[in-house]
Each structure stands twice: as structure tokens, then as C-alpha cells.
Simulated scan of single mutants.
Amino acid sequence: MQDDARFEDGQEKPLNLGAFDADDLKVLSALAQDAVFPVGEMRWQASERRFALLLNRFRWEDGGRDRHGAERVQSVLVIDNVQKVASQGIDRSDKEMILSLLSIDWQPGADADGMLELTLAGDGAIRVQVEALELSLRDVTRPYRAPSGNTPDHGA
């Protein structure tokens, strides 16, 4: 008989996750919380029905934080099946403006369609209308020490 895998048995590896339902999205949203990115790293590819962000993601899953300090990693968040993208509270002409992602929420529609809302710190938000829920989050660099050296704190 085999034993179940234990968390302690896991190794620190790059994330490569997908979200195809509301439960998957909760996990992906938690791992992307407090990611920061400049406005210039948002891409809406209408012909491919894809919206993507290059994030500097805080490594919430990092079990070695006490050993080596807070880390971030560059990750690509891709939303597929996109029909429309809208934003509020973002000056898209300021490509260097840094945004901070707080959560990704799902509002289902009548069928498989619905609306994803990326809530940003401050009053910003990005709304993505999709035909079906399909996201991916993939780490694309090695982790690096967080410039602030701190773990994000929401005072909860």
C-alpha cells in the first residue's frame, strides 16, 4: 500500500497551473494575490481572444521564507476565450505605472460564459468578459529576493 503524498515531500518548483472552474480560480487567485506589474505589461490580443499579464508574483507557496527571506517570481497570467476587456482607474498611457493585483473573481453568466474581475489596489479594476473560464498561471523566471524584503500584509 502506498502512502499519500505529504506537503513536506514537495519540492519548490515553478508553478504551472490552470483554472477551469470557480474552485480552481480561488487557488489561482490566492497565488496571484499581491502580484505587481507595470501597465505596459498588459496585452489584449483580440485576434487570439487572449488577455495576458506579466506579473511579479509574491511566492505565497514558498516554504523556505524563514530561511532565505521573501521572494517574488515573474509569472505569466493568461486568460483565454476573451470577448471583451475593460478597465477603470488605470491610466493606460502611463506604461510605467505599477499596479498591484488583489484578487481575481468570477461572475458566471447564463451558460459557460461570464465575467472575470481583477481587483487592483486603489480604485483600479480590469473586467474580462469570457466565453468560458480558462486561465493559466505559469512562472517564467527563477525566484528572486523581494526588493522590499517584506511579506505583503493586509492587516487581517
Rank of each mutant, 00 (worst) to 15 (best):
residue 135 L to G: 08
residue 128 V to S: 03
residue 136 S to P: 13
residue 16 N to V: 08
residue 8 E to C: 11
residue 14 P to F: 03
residue 103 S to V: 02
residue 18 G to E: 04
residue 21 D to Q: 04
residue 131 E to P: 00
residue 128 V to P: 08
residue 123 D to C: 05
residue 87 S to L: 09
residue 32 A to T: 05
residue 46 A to S: 15
residue 91 D to T: 13
residue 48 E to A: 15
residue 24 D to W: 08
residue 106 W to L: 12
residue 65 R to E: 14
residue 76 V to I: 10
residue 72 R to C: 07
residue 90 I to K: 08
residue 15 L to G: 04
residue 121 A to V: 04
residue 142 R to I: 06
residue 104 I to H: 01
residue 42 M to K: 05
residue 88 Q to H: 11
residue 117 E to F: 00
residue 120 L to G: 11
residue 86 A to H: 10
residue 119 T to S: 07
residue 136 S to Q: 14
residue 136 S to L: 12
residue 50 R to P: 00
residue 142 R to N: 09
residue 92 R to Y: 13
residue 26 K to P: 04
residue 129 Q to F: 13
residue 84 K to D: 15
residue 115 M to I: 05
residue 99 L to C: 01
residue 108 P to S: 10
residue 9 D to C: 02
residue 50 R to L: 08
residue 126 I to D: 07
residue 36 V to D: 02
residue 92 R to K: 10
residue 125 A to N: 14
residue 97 M to G: 04
residue 34 D to M: 05
residue 130 V to P: 07
residue 142 R to S: 13
residue 37 F to E: 00
residue 10 G to V: 15
residue 17 L to F: 15
residue 138 R to N: 08
residue 99 L to D: 00
residue 23 D to Q: 12
residue 11 Q to H: 12
residue 67 R to S: 03
residue 71 E to P: 00
residue 85 V to I: 09
residue 27 V to T: 15
residue 113 D to A: 07
residue 112 A to D: 13
residue 78 V to R: 12
residue 120 L to P: 10
residue 136 S to F: 14
residue 135 L to T: 05
residue 18 G to R: 03
residue 103 S to H: 06
residue 65 R to G: 02
residue 65 R to D: 04
residue 13 K to R: 12
residue 107 Q to C: 08
residue 61 E to F: 11
residue 44 W to L: 14
residue 104 I to Y: 00
residue 114 G to Q: 05
residue 46 A to T: 13
residue 70 A to Q: 01
residue 81 N to D: 13
residue 117 E to D: 04
residue 66 D to N: 09
residue 110 A to S: 12
residue 98 I to C: 11
residue 37 F to Y: 07
residue 28 L to I: 04
residue 65 R to M: 09
residue 97 M to L: 10
residue 77 L to N: 00
residue 100 S to A: 14
residue 124 G to W: 04
residue 59 R to L: 13
residue 119 T to E: 07
residue 110 A to G: 07
residue 90 I to P: 10
residue 78 V to G: 06
residue 65 R to A: 15
residue 101 L to N: 06
residue 45 Q to G: 07
residue 22 A to D: 13
residue 48 E to N: 10
residue 50 R to I: 00
residue 63 G to M: 07
residue 12 E to W: 08
residue 53 L to E: 04
residue 10 G to P: 09
residue 106 W to D: 04
residue 22 A to M: 06
residue 134 E to H: 15
residue 132 A to H: 07
residue 59 R to D: 11
